[in-house]
Computed example of a mutant assay.
Amino acid sequence: MTSRLGALLRATETRVVFALLAAIALVDIGLRLMESRLSGNLAHIAAIPEIIEAAGKPQRHSLLLLGNSLTHNGVSASVVGGRLPNVSVAKVTPDGTGLWDWQCLLDHQVIERREVQFDTVVIGFAWHLLSDQARHDPSRLGGLYCRMSDLANPRTIGLETGSDIGEFVAAAVLRTYALRDTLRNRFFQLVVPSYETFTQAGNAARAGVGAQPGDAPHEAGAPEVVHTYRTFAELVDRLKSKGTQVIVVAMPVQSDYEIDPALRELETSRGLSVIDLRKVAGLDSSHYLDEMHLNHAGQQILSKVLAADLHAELASAT
């Protein structure tokens, strides 16, 4: 009797486990089919391979604008393209990205694709977003930008610990896990009035104090962080080996920040070009949506200045 009851319970537990796994699989499949509808950012990420392929044709001159929301709000691809005739311009600017995300994007969508060729890659940055000490998000890397093959050497994509690797794998396998923040935000947008306005205000308030966005966490009392650029330098080398010039643009924000001397040194050692647009004539506080992001009028001003600088940079290179 006891053995029969135990067998029945084990069978019930097995059915429950399989039912849960089936439910998770169905939810995951559903998310993969409709994720681009969850947010404009996810729709943009899904379109990145096509955006890059459409512009990066080997037989034409081409330029890739890469960055995060600073570049998305700050630079108009049409204004830049209008100042650079006969150059095909693509703009890829997923939210919240930095060095580690950009590295995977460039490796897998530009460097490794034989059908893609860009003469120039222009990366908009601020603070220390290009340094080895920039923050990494294992879920974002695993779910959106990197591949499982990148785990052959996890440190090269910013993963330092076993928990980082576990989070990366979970996000790569389970869409529900990878998109948990987006799902949470969508839920609260539906049930909490003014949730989006509240979160934007919180992000803006944090932007000018404490650790700068993109910095790795810094413990109180710990030695000052020295920012290094080995990972970015190696990425520049890989792009140059494919015939791609790299230009980085220090973007304007309402709080001051310095350009690291180590990044400046790459101008000589790696042939990198640095365009400093931290201060642009005509830009003031009225041209910002918040502490970091330009409004449409500010975008037009910055884009015209950047377009002129890029025109001069590319002309000198040829």
Rank of each mutant, 00 (worst) to 15 (best):
A22E: 03
A22F: 02
A23S: 15
A23F: 12
A23C: 15
A23W: 13
I24T: 13
I24E: 14
I24H: 09
I24N: 12
A25Y: 00
A25G: 14
L26T: 08
L26Q: 02
L26R: 06
L26A: 09
L26M: 05
L26P: 07
L26C: 03
L26G: 07
L26N: 04
L26K: 04
V27R: 01
V27Y: 08
V27H: 04
D28Y: 06
D28S: 05
D28A: 05
I29Q: 13
I29Y: 11
I29E: 08
I29W: 14
G30T: 09
G30S: 05
G30R: 10
G30C: 06
G30P: 14
L31R: 11
L31A: 10
L31F: 10
L31T: 05
L31E: 09
L31Q: 08
R32T: 09
L33F: 06
L33H: 03
L33V: 08
L33R: 06
M34A: 09
M34I: 14
M34Q: 12
M34G: 05
M34K: 15
M34H: 12
M34F: 13
M34E: 06
M34N: 10
M34T: 14
E35L: 07
E35I: 02
E35K: 14
E35Y: 12
E35P: 01
E35R: 15
E35A: 14
S36V: 07
S36A: 14
R37Q: 08
R37V: 01
R37G: 01
R37H: 08
L38E: 00
L38N: 04
L38K: 01
L38Q: 02
S39H: 10
S39M: 13
S39G: 03
G40K: 12
G40P: 04
G40V: 06
G40H: 10
G40C: 01
G40S: 09
N41A: 02
N41Q: 02
N41R: 01
N41H: 00
N41L: 00
A43Q: 06
H44V: 11
H44W: 11
H44I: 09
I45A: 01
I45S: 04
I45T: 07
A46D: 08
A46H: 11
A46S: 06
A46P: 12
A47M: 05
A47Y: 03
A47I: 01
A47E: 11
A47H: 10
A47L: 07
A47K: 13
A47S: 11
I48L: 04
I48D: 01
I48W: 03
I48K: 01
P49K: 10
P49L: 08
P49C: 10
E50R: 13
E50A: 15
E50H: 11
E50P: 05
E50T: 12
E50C: 12
E50Q: 15
I51R: 13
I51T: 11
I51D: 10
I51Y: 11
I52M: 13
I52N: 11
